[in-house]
C-alpha cells in the first residue's frame, strides 16, 4: 500500500442557517495515498464538495469547520492543517503549492479581467523564486503540457476568449504551477461536453502518471469513477457510507446505497428500452436527517426497529474496505 499523504479524520463542517445548523459534513474519515486517485462520489448535498474545500480551509461563511483533523504527510514533519493559524506559512505553501485545486465551473474560477498568463505567472511566482521572465516561460510550458495549442499566443488570452475545455485546461495548468503532490478536483468535467470530458480525463491520467501526483476527484458520475479511480469513497448525507478499491466496489458493492446507485444508472449496451430499478424517495433535506442510518427510509434492506434507531456501525472487512451498515455487523469476514 502506498504511503498516506493526506488523512482526514472526524471532519465536521456545518452551515449556520435560520433553521439551525446544517451538518454538511458529519464525521468524515478519508485517506488519500501518495500517487493514487481517490474518487469521492455522491449526490448533491452529500457533502463531497464541502469536504474538499475543508481540506484547504476554503469553506466560506456561514460554513464553519467544527471538528476533526486534516493531517498532511507531504513534509518531513506531518501536521494538522486545521490547527494552523491563518497566516502560517505552511498553509500558504499548501494552497496552490503542495495541493492544487480545480473547480467545476472553470470560467467562473478564473479571473475574467486578467489574462491566463498573468494568473499563471502570479501563482508560479508565489510558490517559486523564478523571475518574471522565467515564470512566463514556465507558464508557456505548463500550457503546452495541458494540451493548449499555440501556448505562445494563448498565454495572453483572456478567459472569455477560450472554450470551456480550454479554460479547464488553464485551470489545471494553474493548479500544477508548483508541482503539487496532491490535486483536488471538484467535478472538473461536469460542466463540459462528453468529448471534452474524455480529453480532460485522459490528460489528468497522463499528468498523474508522469508526475506521480495523488488526485482527489469529486464527482457524481459513476462512469468517471470507473475510468479514473484507484480507491472510491461513497458519501451520503455528510458521511462516508462505503470505502473500497474501485474494482471491488463495482464488482461487489456492499452498502445498499452503493448497490442501488449502481443499479439505477443506465449502462451503455445493457439497459436499452427497459425499466430501470429505482431508489425510492429522494435525498432528504440535511436539516431533517432521518434518525439512525440516514439512508434507511430509502433502503430495501432496512431492518425496522434497528436501522431507524441506531447509528449504523462502520464494518471493516478483511481487505480493508469498509461499509457503514448493520447488514455486515457480526458477519463472517468482518470485524465490527
Amino acid at each position: 500500500m502506498a504511503q498516506p499523504l493526506l488523512e482526514i479524520s472526524g471532519l465536521r463542517t456545518g452551515f449556520e442557517t435560520h433553521d439551525g445548523t446544517v451538518p454538511a459534513v458529519d464525521g468524515v474519515d478519508l485517506t488519500v495515498h501518495a500517487g493514487k486517485t481517490l474518487c469521492v462520489v455522491g449526490e448533491s448535498g452529500c457533502g463531497k464538495s464541502v469536504t474538499a474545500r475543508s481540506i484547504l480551509r476554503l469553506v466560506e461563511e456561514p460554513g464553519r469547520i467544527e471538528a476533526g483533523t486534516v493531517t498532511w504527510h507531504g513534509d518531513d514533519e506531518p501536521f494538522d492543517v486545521l490547527s494552523l493559524d491563518h497566516d502560517d506559512e505552511r498553509l500558504q505553501k499548501l494552497r496552490g503549492g503542495d495541493i492544487g485545486m480545480i473547480f467545476q465551473e472553470p470560467a467562473a474560477s478564473l479571473l475574467p479581467l486578467r489574462s491566463i498568463g498573468a494568473q499563471l505567472i502570479e501563482t508560479i511566482r508565489n510558490h517559486t523564486d523564478l523571475d518574471k521572465k522565467a515564470a512566463r516561460e514556465r507558464a508557456i510550458d505548463l500550457l503546452q503540457l495541458v494540451g493548449i495549442p499555440k501556448p505562445h499566443e494563448r498565454v495572453d488570452a483572456y478567459p472569455f476568449q477560450l472554450s470551456g475545455g480550454m479554460c479547464q485546461r488553464a485551470m489545471i495548468a494553474i493548479a500544477l504551477c508548483a508541482d503539487p503532490s496532491l490535486l483536488i478536483a471538484d467535478e472538473p468535467t461536469t460542466a463540459l461536453d462528453v468529448t471534452t470530458q474524455a480529453r480532460i480525463l485522459d490528460l489528468m491520467r497522463n499528468l498523474q502518471e508522469r508526475h506521480h501526483m495523488a488526485v482527489m476527484f469529486i464527482t457524481h458520475d459513476l462512469g468517471v469513477v470507473a475510468e479514473l479511480a484507484d480507491e472510491v469513497a461513497v458519501m451520503y448525507l455528510g458521511r462516508v457510507v462505503e470505502r473500497a478499491g474501485v474494482e471491488e466496489l463495482f464488482a461487489d458493492p456492499k452498502h445498499p446505497y452503493t448497490r442501488a446507485l449502481l443499479e439505477s444508472v443506465p449502462v451503455l449496451g445493457r439497459d436499452r428500452g427497459r425499466d430501470l430499478p429505482t431508489v425510492p424517495g429522494t435525498v432528504p433535506n440535511p436539516l431533517h436527517r432521518p434518525k439512525g442510518c440516514s439512508f434507511h427510509p430509502r433502503c430495501r434492506d432496512a431492518i425496522a426497529g434497528r436501522c431507524d434507531i441506531d447509528e449504523p456501525p462502520e464494518v471493516v472487512f478483511d481487505d480493508g474496505r469498509t461499509a457503514e451498515c448493520v447488514l455486515y455487523d457480526d458477519r463472517e469476514g468482518a470485524q465490527a
Binding site: 462528453v194 468529448t195 470530458q197 474524455a198 480525463l201 458520475d221 459513476l222 462512469g223 468517471v224 469513477v225 470507473a226 475510468e227 479511480a229 474501485v246 474494482e247 463495482f250 464488482a251 449502481l262 444508472v265 449502462v267 451503455l268
Partner: peptide, 9 residues
Amino acid sequence: SAAPIPNPA
C-alpha cells in the same frame, strides 16, 4: 467512444 463505461475492469 467518449462515453465513460461504468466498469473499471
